[in-house]
């Protein structure tokens, strides 16, 4: 079963850890934001009902 063959195990170890430590943490860190985003307030301004002044 070739998947159990440890043959170039040191190369695989070094290379996979190199990728794992160099590339992925920067990608993951890119998704952090210092503040939680809050949804925009859905409140509308209150408006008084009005009519044309000559009526």
């Amino acid at each position: 079963m070739p998947q159990l063959n440890p043959a170039p195990w040191f190369t695989i170890l070094v290379f996979s850890w190199m990728i794992f430590l160099a590339i992925i943490p920067t990608k993951v860190m890119g998704h952090t934001s210092p503040n939680d985003s809050s949804p925009l307030s859905t409140e509308k301004h209150k408006t008084e009902s009005w009519d044309w002044p000559w009526q």
Partner: peptide
């Protein structure tokens, strides 16, 4: 699939 290789998985698991 690299994760079918025992050497890769042990290389991640042991450290």
């Amino acid at each position: 699939t690299p994760t079918t290789q025992l050497s890769l998985n042990m290389g991640l698991a042991i450290p």
